[in-house]
C-alpha cells in the first residue's frame, strides 16, 4: 500500500466523466471488432435476429451491451470494500482466462491422462534443477558480492569479469557453451549437471548484484560496532551484515527464483526431461500440443504462485525485528 490519505477522496470509478469516458472507449473498441460471428452474436440473437445478417445494427447492439455490462460491473465493484474488490476482480479475470482457453476446445481426458507424468517427471525435474541452482547461485552471489566490495584487486577483477560475462551472454548460449565446451577440457558432464551449472553461473551473476546492494544497504555503524567489539570480517559478515541484508535481498531473490523456474526450460535443449520439454513432446504425436502447452503453463503458474506465497512468508518473518 502507498501512504493512504486519511480523508477519503471520491471513488474515481463513480465520477460521471470517468464512466462516460470508459463507456465511450469500450463502445468504440468493440465497434471496431466485429463480434457478430462469435458466441456473443449467438447470445444476442433474440435482439438482433440472425447475427450474420444484422449488419451495423447488430454490431452496435453487441458493442453497446458489452460496454453497459463492463461499466456496470466496474461501478458496482467500486461500491465493494477493498478485500471484496480484490476477490471479485481476481475471479472475473480468472473466468475470462478460462473462457479464453475454452475456445481452444481442449481435450480434458488427454490432459488428465498426461498430467501425472507431467508432474512426476516434469515438475519434479524443473523444481529440483531450479532449487539446486538457486542454492549454488546464492553461494556464488555471496562470494561475488564480497569480492566486488573488497579492496583486493584480484578478487574484484575476477568478480567483475564474471558478472559482466555471465550477465552479458544469453542463458541459452551459456547452456551450449557449458554442455559442449566443457568436454573439450576433459570434463564430460551430463545434461542435468550442465544445466544446473549454467543456471547457477548465470543467476549467480545477477544475484551478485542483488547481494552487493543488499550488503551496501547496511549502515556503516553496524560494521563499526562489530569491528569495535573485535569481530573479524567473516564473523561480521555472517552474523551481523548478512542477517540484516537478507530482508533486502530476499524479495528480489524470490523474483530471481521465479524467473529461474521458467528459464530452467532452456535446459530442455540438451535433453533434460523437465516440464517444458514434456510440454513440447507429449502432445506432439496426436497434435494435442495446445493441451500440453496450456497444462504446462498452468503448472508453471501454480509453482510461481506457491513461490510467491513462500516469499511473502519469509518477508513477513524478517519484518519481525522492524515492528515497534
Amino acid at each position: 500500500m502507498l501512504y493512504p490519505d486519511t480523508v477519503e477522496s471520491e471513488v474515481i470509478v463513480h465520477k460521471p466523466w470517468f464512466i462516460t469516458a470508459m463507456f465511450a472507449a469500450i463502445l468504440a473498441c468493440f465497434l471496431a471488432l466485429n463480434l457478430t460471428g462469435t458466441t456473443m452474436g449467438e447470445l444476442m440473437r433474440p435482439v438482433i435476429g440472425d447475427p450474420v445478417q444484422s449488419g451495423f445494427y447488430g454490431r452496435f447492439a453487441i458493442a453497446f451491451t458489452i460496454a453497459v455490462i463492463f461499466c456496470l460491473n466496474v461501478v458496482l465493484i467500486g461500491f465493494a470494500p477493498l478485500k471484496l474488490q480484490i476477490a471479485i476482480v481476481w475471479l472475473e479475470l480468472l473466468l475470462l482466462f478460462l473462457a479464453f482457453f475454452e475456445t481452444f476446445h481442449l481435450s480434458l481426458p488427454f490432459i488428465r491422462e498426461k498430467l501425472p507424468f507431467m508432474i512426476t517427471q516434469g515438475v519434479v525435474t524443473t523444481l529440483y534443477v531450479s532449487a539446486i541452482s538457486i542454492v549454488i547461485a546464492s553461494a556464488i552471489a555471496i562470494l561475488g558480492a564480497v569480492a566486488k566490495l573488497s579492496t583486493n584487486g584480484f578478487a574484484y577483477a575476477i568478480a567483475t569479469f564474471y558478472t559482466s560475462f555471465f550477465r552479458g551472454l544469453p542463458l541459452l548460449m551459456q547452456v551450449y557453451l557449458i554442455y559442449l565446451g566443457l568436454p573439450q577440457l576433459g570434463f564430460v558432464i551430463d545434461a542435468v549437471p550442465a544445466g544446473i551449472l549454467a543456471l547457477s553461473l548465470c543467476y549467480g551473476a545477477y544475484m551478485t548484484e542483488i547481494f552487493r546492494s543488499g550488503i551496501q544497504s547496511i549502515d556503516r555503524g553496524q560494521w563499526e560496532a562489530s569491528r569495535s567489539m573485535g569481530f573479524g570480517f567473516g564473523l561480521t559478515m555472517r552474523k551481523v551484515i548478512l542477517p540484516q541484508a537478507l530482508p533486502v535481498i530476499i524479495p528480489p531473490t524470490g523474483n530471481q527464483f521465479i524467473s529461474m523456474l521458467k528459464d530452467s526450460s532452456l535446459v530442455s535443449v540438451i535433453g533434460v526431461w523437465e516440464l517444458m520439454f514434456l510440454a513440447r513432446t507429449l502432445g506432439q504425436k496426436t497434435f494435442q500440443h495446445m493441451e500440453m502447452l496450456i497444462s504446462a503453463a498452468m503448472l508453471y503458474w501454480i509453482m510461481s504462485i506457491c513461490l510467491e506465497l513462500i516469499q511473502s512468508r519469509i518477508e513477513h518473518h524478517y519484518a519481525r525485528s522492524k515492528v515497534r
Binding site: Y176, V269, I270
Partner: peptide, 11 residues
Amino acid sequence: TPGWDIITAGN
C-alpha cells in the same frame, strides 16, 4: 534426447 542442434554439432 538432446536437442537437434546439439546432436548435429558433433563432438
